[in-house]
């Protein structure tokens, strides 16, 4: 099916995310206004106005009531999705690089950058049921020593926080004590994205080292490797099929202006178990910065450096495609 092109941002996309129900698509970009769209038809519901810098990351609660955004204007904001009103603002010392709601939405984390003499820090804050009660209290601050963190997510049952770093390491932290639990340097260059599976037992990490790995959450052992010829900016897992999608491309600064052919701005499908490439979808005319799968697995979206979001509804023959060696009956249903 033809993708739906959403052109509501003036600058390159930094993060797109579906809500749990999948009816809404949230997008953040280097312009100051995160947007929310109907994922089915691409109609824009509204924007969240208030940031004064690049919005690096956003996350939405499971009930789609609140949106959390982190920005380079040294703030992290909580919004009411329905009204688009900013209900709380955390002032930080440096730019906010990553945000994430914990399971149960009773707390959240945001990561601040290591600039201007400050160290990269994980801030864990409580989220009050009523935003009126929200205070600037911080449950825990974890100072990251070593390479700065670029991405962060909550691990299984909020027992851990998983961060990806600029030097390619993945680290697990204890959110209560702030202790480093485990660390593994699987990638050679900066980690660009980490996305967990629905049951949080494994995650996809993508990196500038032109590869994406499927890693076990408990052991941080790499289970599957997907290697390309370009930096990978985002990698996602299909919720219903054993497939992964990698997005990336030549860095914007290295792109040749003469031809699109050599730059490979494609969404690339791989089989998660056999590691074979099974397909590509092209269309962006800049690198893909962020990818998100619809929770029902029937569609996915990509946000590019070119400022477009492309919502792809997958065709039936994609769902008919199957290796003879695959037997889905063997897989447990969560």
């Amino acid at each position: 099916m033809r993708p739906i092109l959403l052109h509501g941002h003036q600058r390159s996309l930094t993060r797109i995310r579906y809500n749990t129900a999948g009816d809404l698509l949230f997008s953040a970009s280097k312009d100051n206004k995160p947007c929310v769209w109907f994922s089915a038809n691409g109609e824009r519901l509204g924007t969240f106005n208030g940031h004064n810098g690049t919005v690096w990351d956003l996350d939405v609660t499971a009930n789609s009531r609140y949106l959390l955004t982190g920005s380079a204007d040294n703030t992290c904001k909580l919004w009411e999705v329905e009204t688009g009103k900013c209900v709380y603002t955390w002032e930080t010392k440096t730019a906010v690089r990553a945000v994430s709601f914990a399971l149960g939405d009773e707390k959240a984390l945001f990561i601040t950058d290591a600039t201007m003499g400050h160290q990269s820090t994980i801030h864990i804050v409580p989220i009050e049921a009523d935003p009126e009660d929200q205070t600037s209290d911080i449950l825990k601050s974890i100072i990251i020593t070593g390479a700065k963190a670029t991405v962060a997510v909550w691990g299984n049952l909020n027992r851990t926080i998983i961060t990806g770093h600029e030097d390619g390491t993945v680290t697990e932290w204890n959110p209560d004590t702030g202790a480093k639990i485990k660390s593994a340097k699987n990638h050679e260059k900066a980690i660009t994205d980490i996305q967990l599976s629905a049951d949080k037992s494994y995650f996809m990490s993508s990196s500038k080292d032109q590869s994406a790995f499927l890693t076990d959450t408990k052991t941080l052992k790499v289970l599957k490797k997907f290697v390309t010829e370009r930096p990978v900016n985002s990698a996602i897992l299909s919720p219903i099929r054993p497939h992964v999608i990698l997005g990336g491309g030549q860095d914007a600064m290295d792109v040749t202006t003469t031809s699109l052919r050599g730059n490979k701005f494609e969404s690339r499908f791989y089989h998660a178990v056999f590691e074979d490439e099974i397909g590509r979808i092209k269309g962006h005319f800049g690198p893909i910065n962020t990818l998100a799968f619809h929770p029902n697995g029937r569609s996915f979206s990509s946000g590019g450096e070119d400022g477009f979001i492309r919502v792809h509804h997958l065709d039936d023959d994609y769902f008919d495609f199957k290796y003879d060696e695959e037997n889905f009956d063997d897989l447990p249903q969560f």
Partner: peptide, 25 residues
């Protein structure tokens, strides 16, 4: 085919272990 079968059964057993943990939790 042999290699794929091996990979698939490995994957299935991994996912089953994950499922058991998931149930426990």
């Amino acid at each position: 085919v042999e290699k794929r079968r091996g990979l698939w059964s490995e994957w299935v057993s991994y996912r089953r272990r994950c499922y058991e943990d998931w149930l426990k939790e």
